[in-house]
């Protein structure tokens, strides 16, 4: 192999790795909300993908109306957090304490929301326009890379840092962590764990909304996008373990890279490349890499 071909190969490889990492950042934003809710409330919110899609649609509409990307992100987060509030207070309150009923209720909500999206926005594919200040490419080392994808990477890292600080340095975070470990004990200490639950649920939902706007800009929004992102989030959380932030980050990077390289090298088996390792891992470590027994 001559020097030029080798340099070209290295550039393609670097590009693929960056693609994998930016996808991982998006996955982390979505899956961190999922794992927070799963970890504390013990609810596997299968409507999380639908919340992501709704966040994207709302961001698209607000962005088109106001022309502001920041406003689109904020309104998507607020809207989806309110939807999470409605889901928790309006529906999940009737099935508290029974895990499987909660899971299947959220599955029903996912079907309803998906169809509602189809009614409101139709079956077309939308892409949220990239704002001007994030268009173009930046130079990273010797690599030209799209600015927006770098932005997604930065947002992913910021969300990780913010959640880490929230969980480890604040009173609310201490309550959430205590709730993950032993819910009854927290209640016995006289703390209203319900309101902690509700805040967590809204925060997790807001992250899904934020992910929807990011994903809607560098991927696309279409009626089955919710199921696809849900499956990826599930894989991330299953690999990382329930309620673990570090687990979600490692799982997201793993899935992001596997997905990118799987699609390039084994396009027909791309799904297998992602879920094969996940199924194997779960068979031997049923609680994931960082999971703790309930």
């Amino acid at each position: 192999m001559n020097v030029n071909a080798w340099a070209g190969f290295k550039r393609v490889l670097a590009f693929q790795i960056m693609n994998g990492l930016t996808f991982a950042a998006l996955l982390f934003v979505v899956a961190s909300g999922f794992t927070l809710i799963f970890g504390l409330l013990r609810i596997v919110n299968l409507a999380h993908g639908a919340l992501y899609l709704f966040g994207g649609y709302v961001g698209f509409t607000v962005g088109a109306w106001s022309g502001s990307f920041v406003l689109a992100m904020l309104s998507a987060m607020i809207f989806v957090a309110l939807a999470g509030y409605a889901l928790d207070q309006g529906l999940l309150r009737f099935v508290r304490g029974v895990e499987l009923r909660q899971v299947m209720l959220t599955l029903g909500v996912a079907f309803v929301l998906n169809d509602l999206g189809l009614v409101i926005w139709g079956g077309d594919t939308f892409t949220i326009p990239t704002p001007e200040w994030l268009q173009g490419a930046v130079m990273i080392g010797k690599l030209f890379y799209p600015k927006f994808r770098v932005f997604v990477l930065v947002v992913g890292v910021l969300v990780f840092a913010a959640l880490w600080l929230l969980l480890n340095k604040t009173r609310l975070g201490a309550l959430i962590r205590a709730g993950v470990d032993d819910r009854e004990m927290v209640e016995a200490c006289g703390i209203d764990i319900r309101s902690v639950f509700l805040v967590t649920f809204m925060l997790g939902s807001a992250l899904a909304g934020l992910g929807g706007v990011l994903g809607g800009t560098f991927l696309a929004l279409y009626p089955s996008a919710d199921a696809e992102i849900l499956v990826f989030s599930l894989a991330v959380v299953i690999i990382g373990g329930r309620g673990s932030l570090a687990g979600a980050a490692i799982g997201a990077v793993l899935i992001g890279l596997l997905n990118t390289f799987g699609q390039v090298w084994f396009p027909q088996l791309a799904y297998f490349v992602i879920f094969g390792p996940m199924a194997l891992l779960l068979a031997f470590r049923p609680l994931g890499l960082f999971g703790k027994a309930a």
């Binding site: 529906l91 299947m104 209720l105 599955l107 029903g108 909500v109 996912a110 079907f111 309803v112 929301l113 998906n114 169809d115 509602l116 009614v119």
Partner: peptide, 8 residues
């Protein structure tokens, strides 16, 4: 949607 509502 009806399927989802039935499920709920």
């Amino acid at each position: 949607m009806v399927l989802g509502l039935t499920f709920i």
